[in-house]
Amino acid sequence: MTDVLNTLALVSNFIIVPGLAYGSQLALGALGITIVYAVLRFSNFAHGEMMSFGAMITILVTWVLQARGINLGPLPTALLALPLGIVATIGLCLATDRLVYRYYRQKRASPVTYLIVSVGVMFLMGGLIRFVIGPNDQIFADGARFIMKAREFKQMTGLNEGLAIKSSQGVTVLTAVVIVAVLFWFLNRTRTGKSMRAYSDNEDLALLSGINPEQVVFIAWIIAGTLAAVAGTLYGLDKSYKPFTFLQLLLPIFASAIVGGVGNPLGAIAGGFVIAFSELIVTFAYKKVLGYLLPTGLAPEGLAQLLSTDYKFSVSFMILVIVLLVKPTGLFSGKTL
């Protein structure tokens, strides 16, 4: 019995808790991609840099607040700075749309032209970010490090295995839940939200119904900017902030969006968790689990790991390939926005 409980604690500690946090971050990122795709109809390669930008502004504001001694007690100060990060990212998105994307919209450019344009935007934003904050690691997490420490859990339960929950993980999951709830309320309950779904569903009919495409695009960028800033900040809080990582994050985020079916927000969320948990499950060393569950003597000598941790990012790609091969429209296709 204790063996089973120990296994549960072990799996929670190394797979479930980190998976929930990482999955939330991916889901928020994938939602941003999906919204832009559903309304503007292109794959936005600059989304990673948008996340990076939001996180950067949040970090800068956090530093200012920290220097003035303003904080949220046990919560990270970054939460206080996040609204400014969001506003700045929205501003960046709207400015980019005005200066760059709008022209191609009026020209009714092909999706692949948009894609190349977004690569240009990615360069520009990436350069801007590195110019402002430099290419290095930045640490900005503060407040209490843990909601629960491994040692406390062991004392509490008397188990061998500890279960640690970082506050950044808790904050991530809670924030993601709130953001997603608000987003779905907006899309399904408000007139503007519904008009966005209608536009995404059938552009011509939406025009006929008097829905203003420029307004829909405007709102789409506001949502995408918000999601990007939140996702970037949460990822930075949980791991650490480094401009370079956001280009790497692009792949798991795209994978999440496609696995769930591009253009479908519920799918994007599901996809985020599918990717996050797969990465952890495939790269987890099962040595200890097997040690608990198998009779003594049968436990393996090696780490019993399916794939080395170095290949974490490649898992998302493999899932992407499998989905593309088996069900190219994604697991939750059929319903957009």
């Binding site: 007139r191 779904r197 209608a198 569903d201 059938n202 119904s209 829905i211 319903k335 957009t336």
Partner: peptide
């Protein structure tokens, strides 16, 4: 609008 409900379709008509 295939991905909207009947009622939402009518609402969009009255946009």
């Amino acid at each position: 609008f295939t991905s909207l409900t009947v009622e939402e379709n009518l609402e969009m008509g009255a946009f």
